[in-house]
């Protein structure tokens, strides 16, 4: 396992805004088939890591490798086409489109019929439409009753907060990614829903076959899902390992609680 090339890797990545170093020589990696969690106090640079990986920010220095290939400088949509999809902490759905359309829109990157084929309803456009619709239904079915059939034609703004979070995941899944980046998927959910989500993230790996990197504040979720936990503070990796190892790590406790254990 250790010698295998990781699916995804950050090498010495630094990014600053003005004088503020948001990530400082940060290195981390995610193995294929793994569920890893990124934790850290607010402002630790977790979401910045996602923005760097998905191409919304460009690192000042360092390498970002996906399947051994550098993805620094690629346009965000290209990176998504390569197989990295994300959800947004602040929910960025296409609110005035239907639930199903939200998911179907994300299939753009792996379909190819042209405008002219669409206008004249040529065979390839029709076949792709059927495939996209089936794909969307399949991804929505992943969430069982929560995003069941009768919701498909509702506008996305009609969904409850928790369902909007689920729809974000479904939409990311529709890009056919290898790596899913989930940004605080449990934020705003009640305990029952959080429990359900923990189970769901597990199924994303077993049933969906995705590798998952999660940013999460809810330690029950982190404990429940993670093969490996990576803790950040001030843009630096301060701990890495199993949940037990990280949760008992002095520097992590200090970062969260501000305690000075030793002198």
């Amino acid at each position: 396992m250790a010698e295998k090339q990781p699916l995804f890797e950050l090498r010495e990545v630094t990014k600053s805004f003005g004088g503020l170093r948001v990530t400082d020589g940060l290195s981390l990696h995610v193995e294929a088939g793994e569920i890893a969690s990124l934790i850290g106090p607010n402002g630790a640079g977790k979401t910045t890591v996602f923005n760097l990986v998905t191409g919304l920010y460009r690192p000042d220095s360092g390498q970002i490798l996906f399947e051994g290939r550098s993805i620094v400088g690629l346009a965000p949509h290209k990176i998504t086409q390569l197989g990295i999809a994300r959800t947004f902490q602040t929910l960025r759905l296409f609110l005035n489109m239907t639930v199903k359309e939200n998911v179907m829109a994300a299939a753009y990157g792996h379909t190819s019929s042209t405008v002219f084929e669409a206008i004249f309803r040529l065979p390839r456009a029709r076949r792709e439409e059927r495939e996209i619709a089936a794909l969307a239904e399949e991804k929505l079915a992943f969430f069982g009753q929560r995003l069941a059939g009768y919701r498909h034609d509702q506008q996305a703004y009609n969904l409850s907060y928790a369902n909007r979070r689920r729809l974000e995941i479904a939409r990311a899944m529709a890009t056919n990614p290898k790596l899913l980046l989930l940004d605080e998927p449990a934020a705003g959910m009640n305990p029952a829903e959080t429990h359900e989500l923990t189970e769901l993230i597990g199924r994303l790996r077993t049933d969906g076959g995705y590798t998952v990197l999660v940013i999460e504040h809810d330690m029950h979720v982190v404990e429940g899902i993670s093969d490996r936990v990576i803790a950040l503070d001030h843009g630096v990796k301060i701990a890495e390992g199993t949940f037990e190892q990280v949760a008992t790590n002095d520097r992590v406790i200090e970062a969260y609680l501000g305690l000075q254990r030793s002198a």
Binding site: A105, Y108, G109
Partner: peptide
């Protein structure tokens, strides 16, 4: 056209260009 991938992508970029870009559009 509006019921095709292009039409949906147009509406998606009207709704949220950044999210659209992140969703491979």
């Amino acid at each position: 056209l509006s019921e095709s991938r292009t039409g949906r992508a147009w509406r998606a970029l009207r709704e949220d260009p950044l999210a659209a870009e992140a969703m491979s559009i």
